[in-house]
Deep mutational scan, measured.
Amino acid sequence: TQTTHELTIPNNLIGCIIGRQGANINEIRQMSGAQIKIANPVEGSSGRQVTITGSAASISLAQYLINARLSSE
């Protein structure tokens, strides 16, 4: 079954999640098997909405990979 998880990434950290020309986010997508959508910046908001869709296992793996990127910054 597909589930969806949403999280907010601070604007100053979204770059390390996306990577150069989307390299990091594509790697996270491939490794986790989850669909990951990053919302466009919202004016006045300090973060970007990230939506992860997939199986429970792929979502938790995607979250783990995202958190690993954030903590390495």
Rank of each mutant, 00 (worst) to 15 (best):
T1W: 05
T1P: 08
Q2A: 07
T3Y: 06
T3N: 14
T4M: 07
H5E: 10
E6K: 14
E6A: 12
L7H: 01
L7G: 03
L7E: 05
T8A: 08
T8H: 12
I9L: 10
P10T: 03
P10S: 06
N11Q: 08
N11A: 10
I14S: 04
I14R: 03
G15S: 11
G15L: 04
C16N: 12
C16Y: 07
C16D: 10
C16A: 13
I17G: 03
I18A: 05
I18W: 06
I18P: 01
G19L: 01
R20C: 11
R20N: 15
G22V: 02
G22C: 09
A23H: 14
A23Y: 05
N24H: 10
I25E: 03
N26T: 11
R29C: 07
R29D: 02
Q30F: 09
M31N: 15
M31Q: 14
M31Y: 10
S32I: 00
Q35L: 08
I36M: 02
I36K: 00
I36W: 00
K37R: 10
K37L: 08
I38C: 01
I38T: 04
A39N: 14
N40I: 03
N40R: 12
N40K: 13
P41S: 10
P41I: 07
P41N: 06
V42E: 12
V42S: 11
E43Q: 06
E43V: 14
E43M: 13
G47Y: 12
R48S: 07
V50W: 00
V50Q: 00
V50Y: 03
V50L: 10
V50S: 00
T51H: 05
T51E: 09
T51A: 07
T53D: 03
T53H: 03
T53G: 05
T53V: 08
G54C: 01
G54H: 04
G54P: 01
G54S: 01
S55Y: 08
S55V: 04
S55M: 03
A56L: 13
A57L: 05
A57K: 14
S58L: 01
S58Q: 14
S58M: 05
S60A: 10
L61V: 10
L61T: 15
L61Y: 14
L65M: 05
L65G: 04
N67S: 11
A68Y: 03
A68N: 15
A68W: 03
R69F: 15
R69W: 03
R69K: 15
L70G: 01
S71C: 13
S71M: 14
S72N: 15
E73P: 07
E73G: 11
